[in-house]
Design a binder for these strands. Structure first.
Lengths: 166, 166
DNA sequence: GTCGGCTGCGCAATAATCTTTCGTACATGC
DNA sequence: GCATGTACGAAAGATTATTGCGCAGCCGAC
C-alpha cells in the first residue's frame, strides 16, 4: 500500500471527497488548510495515482423503482480459473447484478442484486443465473431493510493506524 | 415509487451523475440535451426529492491499506425488534463495518467489513462482534477478489421497464 | 374560442469557481 | 555555500454556477 506516501492533508482530502464528492475545490482547500491551487494539484495526483477511482451520485434505488435487493451466494461445479473468469464475465453483463465478489469457503461468489420487484428477480434467477453453465447452487437472501450503507473506507481507522506506526 | 413523475431527461441526469458525479453542469446539460439553467434546476429538484442522496468519491481501499474485505453473516438469539435495532446501532458504531443489511432466512444480518489485514479483522471479530450480547452465530467469508462493484441502479433496465408500461 | 394560470425552457448577466502561471520559501545533498 | 527539487500561495484569465426575466406550450374554465 502506498498510504505511507500520503501526508495528513492527502488523507483529509480523500476523507472529505468520500463524504462529499461534489465539494468545490475552494471549500475542500479551506477544510484541509491549504490554498486552492495546491489542493487541486493534490486531488489530480490522487486521481492519477488511482487512489480516487471516480465520483458517483448515490441514488435512491427504492424510489426509482428498484424495491428489491438480494444477496445471492453462488457455488460452481468447477473452480478452474477459466470457469471462474467466465462466471465473472457473465456477472458483468447482467445489469441486475451490481456486485460480484469471489469468496473463500464453500460458497464461490457473493452477488448483490437489485430488481424492480420479486417476480423480476425470480425470472432473472430461474431464467439467467440458474441456467448458467457450471452453476451448481444458488442461495438467495432478501434484504428486509438496510441499516448501514457506507461503501468506502473508515479514515479514522487509517489515521489511528498510521499514528501508531509512526 | 415516483419514477413515473420523472421524464427521460431526469433519468438521463441520474444515469450520468451516477456514472460521473463530478460532471460539470454544462457538460451534463449538453449530454441530456437542454441548456444549463434548467438542467441545474432539475438536479436540485432531484436532490431535494431525495432521489439523489449525495455524491461520493470512490476510493481505492486496497491501496489505502485496507487489504481485507469480509462478508459476515450474523444470527441473533432474539429477533425482537428492540434487539434488531440494537444490533443495527452497534453496526453503525463500528467503523470496520461498512454495510449492514437485515435479511430474511436463517441469517439475520449480512455485514460487509473492511480491515487493514486479517489479524485486525480477527481481533474485531473476536473482540467486538462475537462478544456483542444477543449474537448467536457469525459466519465469515473472505473476499478473494472483486469482479464487479457498481453500487446503484441499472438505468437501462429502468428505461426498458417504463417503456413497456407506457 | 380564448383567456388566465401553470410549467418549463433559454438568454443574458453576475457571482463564484476552476485552472494556469509565476515567484517564493524550505529542505536536501553536494 | 549553493544548486536542486518540491510544494506553497498570490494573481489573472477562462470556465462554470446561479439568478432574473421573458417567452412558448399546455391545459381547464368560462
Amino acid at each position: 500500500m502506498v498510504a505511507h506516501r500520503l501526508d495528513e492533508i492527502d488523507r483529509k482530502i480523500l476523507a472529505e471527497l468520500q463524504a462529499d464528492g461534489r465539494m468545490t475545490n475552494v471549500e475542500l482547500a479551506k477544510r484541509v488548510g491549504i490554498s486552492a491551487p495546491p489542493c487541486l494539484r493534490r486531488v489530480r495526483a490522487l486521481e492519477d495515482a488511482g487512489l480516487i477511482r471516480g465520483y458517483h451520485a448515490e441514488v435512491n434505488a427504492r424510489e426509482l423503482g428498484f424495491e428489491v435487493q438480494v444477496f445471492a451466494m453462488v457455488g460452481l461445479e468447477s473452480q478452474a480459473e477459466v470457469e471462474l473468469s467466465a462466471f465473472e464475465a457473465r456477472c458483468r453483463e447482467w445489469p441486475l447484478v451490481r456486485e460480484c465478489h469471489m469468496l473463500n469457503g464453500e460458497v464461490d461468489f457473493m452477488l448483490k442484486c437489485v430488481a424492480p420487484d420479486l417476480s423480476s428477480f425470480q425470472s432473472f434467477l430461474t431464467g439467467q443465473l440458474l441456467t448458467t453453465p457450471n452453476v451448481a447452487s444458488v442461495k438467495t437472501s432478501l434484504v428486509i431493510r438496510g441499516a448501514k450503507d457506507e461503501p468506502g473506507v473508515p479514515f479514522d481507522v487509517l489515521e489511528e493506524r498510521l499514528s501508531r506506526t509512526a
